[in-house]
Each structure stands twice: as structure tokens, then as C-alpha cells.
Amino acid sequence: MLAEGFDLHRPSSVAEALEFAGRFPGEFRYLAGGTDVLPGLFHGLGATRHLISLQDIAELRAFVPEEGRIGAMVPLGTLAESPELRARFPAVAEAARQAASPNLRNSSTLGGNLLLDTRCTYYNQSAFWREALGYCLKNGGEECRVVQNRERCYAAYCGDLAPSLLVHDARIEVAGPKGRHLRPLKDLYDPQADGRTPFRLGPGEILLSVSLPHEKVRSTYLKLRARSAPDFPEASVAIALTLEGKKLRELRVAASGVATVPLLFEDLTLPLIGHAMTEEVARDLAEKVSRRLHPVTNTAFPPDYRKHVFRHFLMSGIHELQSGTH
């Protein structure tokens, strides 16, 4: 049950939503599919006076898979079941298919998944549980419960869609009080920030849509989780890879579930462009990538196992994409 009530607002346009946001500075949250925000509220997490639902804004529901345009309020189930999306952006469709569970995918949205709050064993608990232990950094407390320290929160980013969209070089459109603008998806995530608020989004800004470039790229998404539904990723990898003859024309790798933000490893993959992707190169890349991962003990599986499976997924994903090219 919700301990304290809130007012629900249902704007029918982006402009109206921004108007509501301007009216309640610091006292509102946007509500997309609600599959993460509402369970949080039931636990007393992210309590707010005003919820501004984006449900009735038609613009946000636009879905044009053949042009790579996806409105932020498109349900993950729609993405999972779109043959056009699967044909052009396989990792995106696959990530949607592996997110949550069939019933949750009917409600949960692309935008909600990209802006999914970071998660931690010590944070995603009831008010009673957190009170009994004493609050953590992300919850207004003094100390992190996972890694004993007073500065940095280690809650993990566990969205499924971000890595796939990152390797497909997605751009996002954002609307704010000063108007609309386009930017790369990777700029939405602040690698310097900790697990408390890792998103680069100004006050009142709304994520409107995602657009994907037209070129054809082979891609895949592999996800570690305890059960095939409804669990969040414990570690996941998206890979986009195109060959020209035997040489790499394009290679991008991104991860989720292993840090406070989704990670894109451009500096490790760019030097490989134009070279052959051998077994040794793949292994070397997997080693270098996995050294960048610092999972901590705040999910179901231990960190070393998550890193191991991540490495394995990265190697087998590269192998799968290469062999499929022939």
C-alpha cells in the first residue's frame, strides 16, 4: 500500500507535460509504464507529491521500425514482437524480448527502461527493511552498505535496452523548458556519476524518442539472469559487428548490469576496425573489457561469476555474429 498519496496528472501533449513540470518544481516525477516507479513507491522509494503520466501523449507512442524511430512510450512487448525491428536492429528486439516478463512488457516502455533507476540489494527493499538496517547512501543515509564507504553509491544500472541501442549508435530526442534537441544516447548516462543519479537530464526534461541510423549492422544481445523471466540482467552484453571481407568494418560493444551506468567501450573497439577479428583478438578484447567492469555484491550472483559470464557472452556473441556472416 502507498503510505502517502500523490496527485496524478495526465497531460495529452508534451507541452502540457512540461507545463505541469514547471508548476511543481522538485515535487514531481514522470510516470511511463509504471512497472518500476510504482513498486518503488510501494516501498517508499522516490516518494513524490505529483506524478505526471506520459500515457496519453500520442506523439510518444509513435513506432516506425523501418525508419528506426521509436517513441519513448512504446511498450517493450511491441519492440519484442516487431519483425521489422528484429530484421534491422536484432539486438534491440532481442533485448526487449529478454526484458522482464511477457505481462510486464505490456506496460513497461522503452523510455522507462532507458531511465530505469539503478538497483541494489540494500536499496530495493521495503521501508521496514531499510529502517531495520539503517539507510544507505542512495536512500539519504551516510554510508554505502555494499562497499563500506561514505562517498560513492554502487547501485547497478539494470536496463536491458540501453546496451543494444548504444551499439546501434542511437540518438535520443529530448524536450525541456528550452525546447527540443537531439543528442547521442550515450550522453544520457554520466560515467562519472555514482549510482544515485547517473542520468544527464535537466529538470523537467522528457525523453521523447530514440532514433537509429539506417545502415544495416549485425547485432546480438546476451543476458545473464537467474531465471528467464522476470529477472533484471546480472550482466549483459550487446555487440554490433559488420565485416568487410575478413576485416571489421564496424564493432561496438556495450554492457548493462555491471556498473552504475550502461557502458560503451568505443576506445577498445575503434582500434580494431580494419583488422581481422581472430579468436585471439576477441579474447584480448574480452579481457580488456572485463577489466573495466566492477560489479559488486549487490545482486543475486557474485561479482566474479558475473564477470566470467560476461566474458563468455562477449566471446560467443562475437563468434555468433561472425559465423552468421558467411
Binding site: 540489494t121 521495503s126 531465471r227 528467464s228 523471466a229 543475486a300
Partner: peptide
């Protein structure tokens, strides 16, 4: 003595697909 997973998300019953 602290129960770490008092929820059906964190207490891993087998899902239909398994």
C-alpha cells in the same frame, strides 16, 4: 539474522520457462 530476499523477485522460484 537478516533476511536479504523477502520478495518474489529476489527469492528465485523456478519460472514456467525452466
Amino acid at each position: 539474522t537478516r533476511l536479504m530476499n523477502p520478495s518474489l523477485l529476489d527469492y528465485k522460484t523456478v519460472s514456467a520457462t525452466e
